[in-house]
Amino acid sequence: MSVRQALLALLEQGPMYGYQLRSEFEQRTGGTWPLNVGQVYTTLTRLERDGLVAGAGADDEGHVVYRLTEDGHGEVATWFTTPVARTQPPRDELAIKLALAVTVPGVDVGRVIQQQRTATMKALQDYTRLKRSERGAERVDLAWGLVLDSLVFAAEAEIRWLDHCESRLRRAAREQSAAPASAPVQEEAR
């Protein structure tokens, strides 16, 4: 996740100081990707160095406030009009784990899948519970609601993929146990 782009986009709303930027970010994402204030200030310093933001003095309490420069506005526009690249998928520990589980001897792959499915289902239940409380709230926060939906759909996709892995493994196991006898002949006969 690009902290840089997120901070620039938030500054489209108007000048803000570091702590404010952090709370604006977390309001929208519900603390799903926590930002520490140090990270925010380091990023702001770099953005200032690159000419995308500029200091806009201090507020009454002495917080240094930042605003977007002309280049900064351009950068935000570019970000919103460019799709997020999917060419380099992030490293997926679960996919790697299963790829190794089916090749390394002595691993009960079925067990690995079942345990993961139960854990992912629990997470999905938690997200859904959060959604339900959101629905009950007087003012539904659209931004946070969408982030929550994204987590829900991702967890659902993971469970579907685990189901798929399970049925592929079962089929592979069946074919293997049938193979020595008559299976290849039957295949040809069809």
């Binding site: 854990a119 239940q125 829900v152």
Partner: peptide, 22 residues
């Protein structure tokens, strides 16, 4: 799964047997 997540408990069936419960 997205719909099952509304439940308090989720029971997984495979070939007529309960394999998991979350």
């Amino acid at each position: 799964a997205r719909h099952a997540a509304w439940a308090d408990r989720v029971v997984f069936l495979r070939d007529g047997v309960v394999v998991d419960e979350s």
